[in-house]
């Protein structure tokens, strides 16, 4: 390897070590949280957001433009 720069262009971060599954598993709790956020925007009709239909109607236009079936 002549210069570190040439080496990084050649190999780059492509040889990045895979992140161990055990380390990834510590972040799995984020998946249901993020899906819940998407659900509240897209589907929820007051089932989870207990403010009744308010949140549903508040984000109504976004749902239509995001192509989620609305009404």
């Amino acid at each position: 390897m002549r210069s570190t720069e040439a080496a990084s262009i050649e190999a780059g971060p492509a040889v990045a070590e895979p992140i161990p599954l055990r380390e990834l598993a510590r972040w799995l709790w984020l998946v249901p949280v993020l899906l819940l956020v998407a659900y509240v925007v897209g589907m929820d009709q007051g089932v989870i957001s207990r403010s009744g239909m308010y949140l549903h109607e508040f984000m109504h236009d976004g749902r239509h433009l995001l192509a989620v079936p609305c009404h």
């Binding site: 040889v15 990045a16 070590e17 895979p18 992140i19 990834l24 972040w27 984020l30 998946v31 993020l34 899906l35 956020v37 998407a38 509240v40 925007v41 897209g42 109607e57 508040f58 984000m59 109504h60 236009d61 976004g62 749902r63 433009l65 995001l66």
Partner: peptide
């Protein structure tokens, strides 16, 4: 108010998509 809600909805949607995409990236890297 629904016009304002549009921006809140897309912001939350983007946040959720960005986070999920990041987790998929973390798995695929390497």
């Amino acid at each position: 108010t629904q016009h304002l809600g549009l921006v809140v909805a897309t912001a939350l949607y983007g946040l959720a998509i960005g986070g999920l995409l990041a987790l998929a990236f973390a798995f695929m890297r390497g």
